[in-house]
């Protein structure tokens, strides 16, 4: 094969790669959350519920009353049961969501968040983790019983 032709081919191929790379910049890739299980706990470390193989929940879940903001932290475990450190992962958004979106809301904070319920009675909620434009983890639904409103039901204080 003619070496000059080979080199010309390489030049064309390289130029093509460079041009393509320019039109489609290489995205910064961050790893998925490789979590096997989830723990819900209070800020002082009391575990209130955890998933078992992310197929079912163990524990009663948070005690919710209408309008009360319940502070919670969410921890993630790998398949060996070790706690995963998500420190500094602003590409991961941890959310709790109610099956009925108007039944309550999760307010994320720098550490954990607050869970507000608005409708008394049986409700279901779950944890999910958004990674950029997709979801990395979704737990099963966790059934909770929401108590009627207290007399002090009002606007939450700002975080």
């Amino acid at each position: 094969m003619n070496p000059t032709a080979v080199i010309r081919g390489l030049v064309v191929a390289s130029a093509l790669v460079l041009t393509t790379a320019c039109e489609h910049p290489i995205a910064v890739v961050t790893p998925h959350l490789e979590a096997a299980d989830v723990i819900l706990r209070t800020p002082d470390g009391v575990e209130i519920a955890r998933t078992i193989d992310n197929r079912r929940w163990s524990g009663a879940g948070p005690a919710l009353g209408v309008g009360d903001g319940v502070p919670l932290e969410v921890r993630f475990l790998d398949f060996q049961g070790r706690v995963l450190d998500l420190g500094g992962r602003s590409d991961l958004q941890v959310r709790l969501e109610f099956e009925d979106p108007s039944a309550g809301v999760w307010e994320p904070l720098s550490r954990g968040g607050r869970l507000f319920a608005f409708a008394a009675g049986p409700q279901r909620l779950r944890v999910l983790v958004r990674h950029l434009d997709h979801v990395d983890l979704v737990t099963p639904w966790l059934g909770v019983e929401v108590a009627p409103p207290s007399a002090t039901f009002s606007h939450p204080e700002s975080p």
Binding site: P108, H155, P156, S158
Partner: peptide, 14 residues
Amino acid sequence: IIYSHIDHWHGFAI
């Protein structure tokens, strides 16, 4: 004050 932050709200309307 009730405000949105990207995909969520801080606070709710009562």
